[in-house]
Design a binder for these strands. Structure first.
Lengths: 185, 185
DNA sequence: GATCCGTCTGACCGATCGGTCAGGTGCTGA
DNA sequence: TCAGCACCTGACCGATCGGTCAGACGGATC
């Protein structure tokens, strides 16, 4: 089977990735040293840096799937305006947040710093477009404030309720999002 | 005048406090070194540590007023249950968040780490009681999820809309909080 | 003038960080 | 048998961190 071949190559690579995800989720990105990750894997720090160019590349590979879905959502929202965009954005964002709540949890509180880095610069633009969509493309402060409460609150709730099953978390988040955004106008 | 006497003593102390607040707001607590603060003040790092026992003490003095108000709110909420507690908590929390949005901004994304420290341990308990009050003391996941979205979203919105006048920010936040929490049951 | 004290500083400390590098090890294919 | 290669490692690097310490400076007190 090609399964054997495909699995033979990564192994340690995947172990490191998994260990990094575990540590990042507990102590955050900045708060986790390459030593910590190496200790969790049971290898040397040099081995971690053999498999990944640097610490940021490790984070990048860990976040790649989530970022891909986020970009897809951004493009899908671009095709709508006003209330339609608001609905698409809310549903898509809740889906994304629930699905990738592990990845969200490990970036808890480090978004502000990481978004400054050029590697994640475009994510800031996406989140601004998400915010505009949540606000129904309104410039009214009240609409933008409600949008930001939802935009910031949902990921946090996802990270906190990590063990709740998707089927329970998703509709509850969608409901609170619609409630918070709907009568804004 | 006693103004001269009163001002003669602190001066540099206050300068350091103000500079630290400015730097923390931009680069966060962990991301700001004592060197950074000293450079902003125009003094040496040793001077910063002459006026404050250590970096944590600096943060403590910066946050003391906000923490005091938070504790007062906690005690006020304890006197109510159910919907009444929900209303008191929402109004009190919005007031607090708007009033201390500077302090909130400089802790952006560092709450998870800081709450682990023993010096801020009781704040975690307070936020749990706030969460329960927001949820109307219900154990239903949907209620707790909505409560967490509000609890996490409001501070973030406050930090982001730092330049919006209180009279505009406060009612908008209160409205979205009530909307998000009210029909939860 | 001597003494004291609040303020401030440069030099220094040990620890830890992300990252580099030369070299060891064991498998593989010629 | 041996060269080549993927994988892994200990030792090391420069930078930076929070924090310490002995002493310099200047104004008040006696």
């Amino acid at each position: 089977m090609l399964d054997d071949m495909a699995r033979a190559v990564p192994e340690t690579h995947q172990d490191i990735l998994a260990a990094a995800a575990r540590r990042f989720a507990v102590t955050g990105y900045k708060g986790t040293s390459l030593q910590d990750i190496a200790r969790e894997v049971g290898c040397s720090k040099a081995t971690v840096l053999y498999h990944f160019a640097n610490k940021e590349a490790l984070l990048g590979e860990l976040m790649a799937p989530a970022i891909g879905v986020l970009q897809a959502l951004d493009e899908r929202i671009a095709g709508h305006t006003g209330p339609a965009a608001q609905r698409v954005a809310a549903e898509g964002f809740v889906d994304l947040a629930v699905r990738f709540r592990r990845e969200i949890a490990l970036l808890r509180g480090e978004f502000p710093d990481l978004l400054q880095q050029p590697a994640f610069a475009h994510i800031q633009q996406i989140s601004e477009r998400l915010l505009a969509a949540f606000a129904g493309h309104s410039d009214r402060p009240a609409a933008r404030i409600a949008a930001l409460v939802v935009l910031a609150g949902i990921p946090e709730a996802c990270a906190e309720f990590a063990d709740l099953p998707d089927e329970e978390l998703r509709p509850a988040l969608l409901a609170v999002a619609h409630r918070a955004l709907d009568p804004t106008n």
